[in-house]
């Protein structure tokens, strides 16, 4: 399993692996918003929590279809399915690799992007905490969507349509945590609900995704 994680990380940083793509996308979104809504600081500060979370979510979505599609196309997924590690573990490890290459850089870079959107001072802690707690759920839910659409031609678009509604609870509680943090309020409640969504997704979805892959490999 460590070998699989190491391989996926290595593939991500090699040419064409897409590492940094999500981060660059996030940067562009947050840089474009002030151009669109104008440089007025108060407006930006009010919409910053929502924009930051929507941006993170779309950045995650960008690389989802690669999780299984590439392995399916070159035949590796067949081989992984017959390998001695359970397919549920394969899904979990590949979700982890996706989070390490997409979610974690977003968490680390988010404070910088918060500056671009004039996020109020107290909001930074909430932003980093909510992204750190919430982005693993984005990766696991996304891996489930990718498992459902693996093997479909142009499955990427269908994947977005399937996955985005499932992201709604994460978005609501994530943005709420940042909004409360930015307003100087206690954000423990939305953060805990966010953690609950992540824990539930981590516990259940690898099994669902593995079942979906088995059906798609037939």
């Amino acid at each position: 399993m460590i070998a699989l994680l190491a391989r996926d990380l290595r593939l991500a940083v090699r040419a064409g692996g897409g590492f940094g793509l999500g981060l660059a996308f996030f940067l562009i979104v947050t840089a474009l918003v002030p151009f669109g809504v104008g440089p007025e600081g108060g407006t930006l500060a009010r919409i910053a929590p929502g924009i930051l979370w929507v941006g993170a979510l779309l950045a995650c979505l960008l690389s989802l279809d690669r999780i299984f599609a590439l392995d399916f196309e070159d035949g590796s997924l067949d081989l992984l399915a017959t390998a001695p590690i359970p397919l549920e573990a394969v899904v979990a490890v590949k979700s982890l690799a996706h989070w390490l290459t997409t979610g974690l850089p977003l968490v680390l870079a988010a404070p910088v992007f918060g500056l671009l959107l004039n996020l109020p001072g107290p909001g930074y802690g909430a932003l980093v905490a909510s992204l750190a707690v919430g982005t693993p759920a984005l990766s696991v839910i996304g891996a489930f969507g990718a498992a459902l659409t693996v093997g479909l031609k142009r499955g990427g678009l269908l994947l977005s349509l399937l996955v985005l509604p499932l992201y709604v609870p994460t978005l609501i509680f994530g943005a709420e945590a940042v909004r409360r943090g930015a307003g100087g309020l206690d954000f423990a409640t939305p953060l805990m609900l966010l953690a609950a969504i992540t824990a539930g997704a981590l516990a259940g979805l690898p099994f669902a995704a593995a079942a979906a892959i088995r059906v798609n490999l037939r």
Binding site: R7, R10, L11, R14, A15, G16, G17, E73, D74, G75, S76, D78, L79, T82
Partner: peptide, 15 residues
């Protein structure tokens, strides 16, 4: 007990 080799080689081009 089975090791499977299909039509596809299952190789990663960048490795």
């Amino acid at each position: 007990a089975v090791a499977y080799a299909g039509h596809a080689d299952g190789l990663k081009a960048t490795l």
